[in-house]
Every structure is written in structure tokens, then in C-alpha cells.
Nucleic acid binder design. Structure first.
Length: 502
RNA sequence: GCGCCAUUAGCUCAGUUGGCAGAGCAAUUGACUCUUAAUCAAUGGGUCCUGGGUUCGAAUCCCUGAUGGCGCACCA
């Protein structure tokens, strides 16, 4: 920020920083060893009475540090609240106790400064656990004022662009990201306990495969070739199942060059997992058990309210075929319809728009599902047996070649996971890739390219395998009650503002 | 990409019919040794998002652009 754009308050704070230097104090000071953070301080001293705490003999004084969030300086004594990751604690600074120099330091300090205090616990007349300061240490000068103390930072754009301020001012926001971390931690520990191996596969892909999505393109200089940021790790993880691992998973970022919305960010975090010798049923059982474990360990319940809907995440989720669900919602039974033109007619009768690259029944069935069923799936539901045309990497169902052993998990009208009994017949896989290429020619920008190396891997033999991918951001939204994906991403993508900035 | 809405002090927000730009917090100065949205007194702080237009006069009306939010489309 150029000097001529500084506000009055910024100028004053810079002057104060210079005054500190003049007094031999580094405005951006150094290490301060703490005996407690605010949480452990409250745990250690929160249960004493006012009298007990006065009598308390400490081996060493308490050393605690944090950002000044409010101050009430009144003549020759004053209070302030300081904040660290775990919360706020009041400090009491009194001229008699700290001496003139340190008292001036406290008095001239600003909200937003970071300070250390050395002292003893006390309880005020109003009953608040407080640090009675014996030594007051300036640690870091804040050169800009914090947002207003009572309302905090309200502006949604500012909260996304300057997340650090949001984290300082809005406890809810901080709690969301702590919970996000816990959710992923519990996911890992659940899977590790079950014997899955966590792996990392390339993010730069020569062929963008494993999902239907438009990729980001980049370029490698030395190899002088294009690379795609991965849209899915699927084809690499399956190579690892060929390689003999029983169960593998990867938690990581996927990149899809598509619209940004309340539930889409160009990069998002997924869990993708494969289990040898398993199948679709195995993935359903795993999903129920894992999400149940996560919710119980993180939020301590399996009944949640999301968007004013009560959702029961306890085990025993509904499992229903896509065609049965469509029949339930619309009365149309696609298992009885064989003719594409008839299906197309049914779709148009119901006001659905059928794009050119839709050349078969399966696309119409999927369209019906997305248009008429998805939204009403409030309670956790596994919708299975997807049309083969929209599932290029999935095994066919044994009883009907038009459908595949695939499910998606829906909760609160939104998709959370996508699972398959994996296709392990290399010749079948080859044909599916070829069909994808045809779709691409017909205008589908998301269709897969042929991955010959992957076919070759399958030719060595992949055991029967169940696979699943989860959208972690959405799971976090569900468990934190966030309405927008941006509320669970620390730094959601924003268009750069004029000038520079990210 | 399309539609609707928003943008006023560092922050949270008012601003009437088009008629001098406002409050609270924060800041500055002073008083105050258990306050807690501390209190009291005084003071300073504005590209009213940008650029045009209408008008004697625009924060306010019209047009353009920027950024954001929401909805639609695409998708997970």
C-alpha cells in the first residue's frame, strides 16, 4: 500500500511503532515462551474460587500471549481481552504492579497488537478469571485497525478475500475450519485403522481421465507437452490395485474448469478409495460406517439440521435403484422402455431439453433422475444401478446390460459420493473409451480420452474391486451447517480486484 | 455466460421528495486504580465503487464499467 493512501489511523500506528523503536522496543518483537495458552490457562485455574485463587502459590508466574481484542483503560489501571487460537482471556494491568514504563506501553497500545503478559491468575469482583499482570511485554504492532469489535467483519467479500481477519473476528468461522480439520483427521484415522494405505498420485496428468469434466491445461517446458491438472485420481489408484495393494485411498485436490457457485469451486478436495475383492455393496457399507464414525467423533451426534431439514445419519440408509426412484417420482418405468425416440419424447413432454450428444436411453434416464428425483432426497440415500452411458468406468449389472453397478450418495438433495464396482475387463474398458471419444466428437466437452496405458494395466489383471469418491467440502458443509462451499474453503477463488491482490 | 440485488469514514450501518455527508465502534486529547459493547468531555477522519449523462443542484434519477452476493446454466 502506497504511503499517500494511508488512513489517519494507519499513520498514527506507524508513529507509535517508531516511538517504540525510540524507546528500544522492537515493534515486531521476538520469541515469548508461554506456560499456558488461553484454553490450558482456563483449565488450570477456572475451578478455583476468588479466595482460593488469591492464596494460590505458583512455582512460576503464568506467561500467556495473544492479540488485544478490546481495552478498557481507566487512569492508572486497565483491562483488556487478549485472544489466541483457543479463545479470549481478560488481563488486568495496574500501574502499581507493572511500573511506569510498562504501563505506558499498555496505555499506548492498540487493539490488534499482540502482547505477552507475565503474572498470576485472579478473579475480578464481577467473577471473571483474569491474568493479573506483573510484566507487560509488547510483541507485535498492528499497523492497521481491526474491524469493529461488536459486529466483527460482516462483509462477505472481505471475509473470503481476507480470511485472516474473518478468523480473528468471527469465532464461528474459526470453528468451521477447526471442525474441517477434525473431519479429515477422523476420516484418515478410520481408514488407516481399517488397513487402507494412503497414497499420493500425480496431479499433472498427460490425459485427463477418471471423470467427466473439463480440465485445466498447463504446459511442461522441458518435455514440451501439455499437462492437465487432474480431474480425478481414479486411473492411477486402480493401477495400484493392479499392483497388488488391497485397499488404497487418496485425499487431495481435484481441479475442474467449470463454473463457480455456492457448491462449486474450481479446486476441491476429494477422498477417493479402492478396495480389492469388494464391490458396490462393500462401498455402501463402508460409507455408512465411515460417515457415522466421523459424525460421532466430530460433532457427537448423528442427527443434524441442515437448511432447516432434520437429517438422520444413523446407519441403515435407503438403497434404491435409479429406475425405481424415477418410477416412484414420475410414474415412468424405464425398464419397460427400449426405444430411444420414445424416451426422448417422454423427456420433451416433461419440458426437458435433450442435447445433441444424447444418443441413447441412459442419458435420458439420468436426465430424468437429475431433474425430478435428486432434490427430494433429503435423508441419506444410495441411488444405484446407473445407466451405462453415464458410467464409462463401471461394471455392468449382471441382470441388465444397460445398467452398471454404480451408486451415488444423496443427502439433503445433494450428491456426496460416487461409487462403483470397478470395471476390470480391459476389452470392455477399451470399448467404453471408444464410445467416449465418439461423444467428444458430438460436442461433449467432458468426455474421457483413451488411456491406453491404463488398458494395458488392466490386461495384467485387476481383482474385482469396489471404488468410491467423496466430496469432502460438501461433507464439511453438511456437518458445519455451511450454506456455501466458500464458507468451508479457507481461501475460495475470487476474481482479482483491480490493481494486484489474489 | 444470462437475470436480480448490493457497494456511503478503518469497521458496522443510517441517509426522507434531488437541496450543506450522518451515527456507533475505532482513532486523537483530557478525567478516571475491579472494568467488560467501561463511562464522561472535546477533536479529527469521506474518490458516497469507476466513468459518463440529466439537472440551477445528484449519495439519491438514467447509461456504462468493476467487484461481490443470490438464482439459472455447467458440474461434484
Amino acid at each position: 500500500m502506497s504511503e499517500n493512501k494511508r488512513t489517519e489511523q494507519e499513520i498514527v500506528r506507524r508513529e507509535k511503532a517508531n516511538e517504540l523503536r525510540d524507546n528500544g522496543i522492537d515493534p515486531f518483537g521476538s520469541r515469548f515462551d508461554r506456560t499456558h495458552n488461553i484454553k490450558t490457562f482456563k483449565e488450570a485455574f477456572g475451578s478455583y474460587s476468588k479466595e482460593e485463587i488469591k492464596e494460590l502459590e505458583l512455582d512460576e508466574p503464568v506467561r500467556i500471549a495473544g492479540r488485544v481484542m478490546s481495552r478498557r483503560v481507566k487512569g492508572k489501571a486497565g483491562f483488556a481481552h487478549i485472544q489466541d487460537q483457543y479463545g479470549q482471556i481478560q488481563i488486568y494491568v495496574r500501574l502499581d504492579n507493572v511500573g511506569e514504563d510498562q504501563y505506558q506501553l499498555f496505555k499506548k497500545g492498540d487493539i490488534g497488537d499482540i502482547v505477552g503478559v507475565i503474572g498470576k491468575p485472579m478473579i475480578t469482583h464481577t467473577g471473571e478469571l483474569t491474568v493479573k499482570t506483573e510484566t507487560f511485554v509488547h510483541l507485535t504492532k498492528a499497523l492497521r485497525p481491526l474491524p469493529e469489535k461488536y459486529h466483527g467483519l460482516q462483509d462477505i467479500e472481505e471475509r473470503y478475500r481476507r480470511r485472516y481477519l474473518d478468523l480473528i473476528m468471527n469465532e464461528d468461522s474459526k470453528d468451521t475450519f477447526i471442525l474441517r480439520s477434525k473431519i479429515i483427521q477422523e476420516m484418515r484415522s478410520y481408514l488407516n485403522d481399517k488397513g487402507y494405505l494412503e497414497v499420493e498420485t500425480p496431479i499433472l496428468h498427460p490425459i485427463a481421465g477418471g471423470a467427466n469434466a473439463r480440465p485445466f491445461v498447463t504446459h511442461h517446458n522441458t518435455l514440451d507437452m501439455p499437462f492437465y491438472l487432474r480431474i480425478a485420481p481414479e486411473l492411477y489408484l486402480k493401477r495400484l490395485i493392479v499392483g497388488g495393494f488391497d485397499g488404497v485411498y487418496e485425499i487431495g485436490r481435484l481441479f475442474r474448469n467449470e463454473g463457480i457457485s455456492i457448491e462449486h469451486n474450481p479446486e476441491f478436495t476429494s477422498l477417493e478409495l479402492y478396495l480389492a475383492y469388494s464391490d458396490l455393496e462393500g462401498m455402501m457399507d463402508l460409507t455408512e460406517n465411515m460417515i457415522n464414525h466421523i459424525t460421532n467423533e466430530t460433532i457427537g451426534t448423528d442427527t443434524i439440521t441442515y437448511n432447516d431439514q432434520e437429517i438422520d445419519l444413523s446407519k441403515g440408509w435407503r438403497r434404491i435403484k435409479m429406475t425405481d426412484l424415477i418410477k416412484e417420482e414420475t410414474g415412468v418405468d424405464f425398464t419397460d422402455i427400449d426405444d430411444f425416440e420414445e424416451a426422448k419424447k417422454l423427456a420433451k413432454e416433461r419440458g426437458l431439453d435433450v442435447p445433441d450428444h444424447f444418443r441413447s436411453m441412459g442419458h435420458i434416464i439420468n436426465l430424468f433422475f437429475e431433474s425430478f428425483c435428486e432434490e427430494s432426497l433429503t435423508q441419506p440415500t444410495f441411488v444405484h444401478d446407473y445407466p451405462i452411458e453415464v458410467s464409462p468406468l463401471t461394471k455392468k449389472t449382471p441382470d441388465d446390460e444397460r445398467f452398471t453397478e454404480r451408486f451415488e450418495l444423496f443427502i439433503a438433495g445433494r450428491e456426496y459420493a460416487n461409487a462403483y464396482t470397478e470395471l476390470n475387463d480391459p476389452d470392455d474398458q477399451y470399448e467404453r473409451f471408444k464410445n467416449q471419444l465418439k461423444e467428444k466428437e458430438l460436442g461433449s466437452e467432458e468426455a474421457n480420452d483413451m488411456d491406453r496405458d491404463f488398458i494395458e494395466a488392466l490386461e495384467y489383471g485387476m481383482p474385482p474391486t469396489g471404488g468410491i469418491g467423496y466430496g469432502i467440502d460438501r461433507l464439511v458443509m453438511l456437518l458445519t451447517g455451511a450454506e456455501s462451499i466458500r464458507d468451508v474453503l479457507l481461501f475460495p477463488h475470487m476474481r482479482p480486484r483491480e490493481g494486484n491482490q489474489s
